[in-house]
């Protein structure tokens, strides 16, 4: 917590200076949420709000999702416009770079406040571990590679790896790839990449895999939280909303739900930074990261491409090599 406090102080100071010197018009960061152990995005142009900025193990959102909607300073119209300073963890930073590659955001309108990320705590895991709901917990304190959880006044200690998000456990680049100001020292990956491979379906037949997804997608209510929380889903109009031709019925039947998610994930090829927000936001707990993670690995395996690593690199799907994916085509 101590180092978080220091980072937090520095963040507030830097953000304040940026606004004061008129270097940016907007700050996007996190403030304490209305519920225990939550934070919420803070999007503000008001210096008075800045002392609410926080850094803690619950800053889960990928704030890059807000960038494509914020118009450049030269545009007339919407109020949310101008140059932006944004708080970014490793995966968020890669999403930002990916947006720059796709011409959705201009780098010179951005000040990236990088956070070397030690991993975020997944409340669902804490709830499973303790058998209690979030609001019944007294405290969750991270101390290095341990976490102390207090329930009914009784504190118990667990290894931090028990409660970190799966994608954090397998995170390759916890420090943002591109930043203007780094708050803290660069950190090394938490563990081997394979540590984050929970719920990956391997070693079962295609029929069994299809059956698995058929069952999972029966639950989907098509709220589109997975799409809307995703920084890489920036289409003005999503293909599911097309009506001529109407690719998909708007009804939440598993066939349509599955197709929607399959195509969405294919669209994310080379864009997804494995931030895991789709799975976290799903209100019916569909293991969506099992899909995005597979896509992330596939792109790496086939084309040696990792999303959001260099802002000058061409996007995956606009580029090609003379010789690749040979054995897949007759």
């Amino acid at each position: 917590m101590n180092s978080n406090n220091k980072i937090q102080q520095k963040l507030r100071h830097e953000a304040g200076a940026l606004l004061e010197q008129n270097k940016v018009d907007l700050i996007i960061g996190f403030e304490p949420g209305s519920l225990k152990f939550t934070t919420t995005p803070l999007i503000t142009r008001d210096k008075g709000d800045l002392d609410r900025l926080v850094i803690n193990p619950f800053i889960v959102n990928n704030l890059a999702v807000f960038l494509p909607d914020i118009k450049g300073p030269d545009l007339k119209g919407p109020k949310l416009k101008g140059r932006v300073a944004i708080v970014a963890k490793g995966c968020d930073g890669r999403s930002i770079v990916s947006l720059i590659q796709d011409n959705k955001v201009r780098r010179d309108n951005l000040v990236i406040l990088g956070i070397p990320c030690p991993g975020m705590i997944e409340l669902r895991k804490v709830e499973k571990l303790t058998g209690k709901d979030r609001d019944e917990l007294d405290d969750i304190i991270r101390e290095g590679d341990k976490v102390v959880i207090t329930v009914d006044g009784k504190a118990s200690e667990f290894p931090i790896s028990d409660v970190l998000f799966d994608n954090c456990l397998g995170c390759e680049f916890p420090t943002p790839q591109d930043y203007d100001i780094l708050l803290g020292e660069p950190t090394a990956p938490f563990a081997e990449r394979s540590a984050g491979q929970a719920r990956i379906l391997k070693g079962i037949s295609p029929q069994e895999r299809w059956e698995f997804w058929r069952r999972e997608f029966r639950r989907c209510i098509r709220c589109y939280a997975c799409r809307n929380i995703c920084p890489s889903c920036f289409c003005q109009r999503c293909f599911v909303e097309e009506s001529e031709p109407q690719w998909l019925m708007p009804v939440p039947r598993w066939q349509e739900n599955l197709m929607f998610q399959a195509i969405r994930t294919i669209h994310l090829a080379g864009r997804c930074s494995d931030c895991g927000e789709c799975e976290r936001s799903c209100p019916v707990n569909i293991p969506l990261r099992s899909l995005t993670r597979e896509m992330y690995d596939l792109v790496d395996e086939l084309f040696h491409f990792k999303a959001g690593m260099a802002k000058d690199a061409p996007p995956l799907m606009t580029h090609y090599e003379q010789e690749e994916a040979k054995d897949l085509i007759r």
Binding site: P206, I266, L298, L302, M317, E324, L328, R330
Partner: peptide
């Protein structure tokens, strides 16, 4: 080629038999 390769491999992961999607 990139698009088809990714689609084929990804749908295979979801459970669609590789024989069903072919390119030449």
């Amino acid at each position: 080629r990139r698009r088809v390769a990714i689609t084929k491999k990804f749908l295979e992961y979801m459970g669609i038999e590789p024989e069903r999607i072919q390119a030449s």
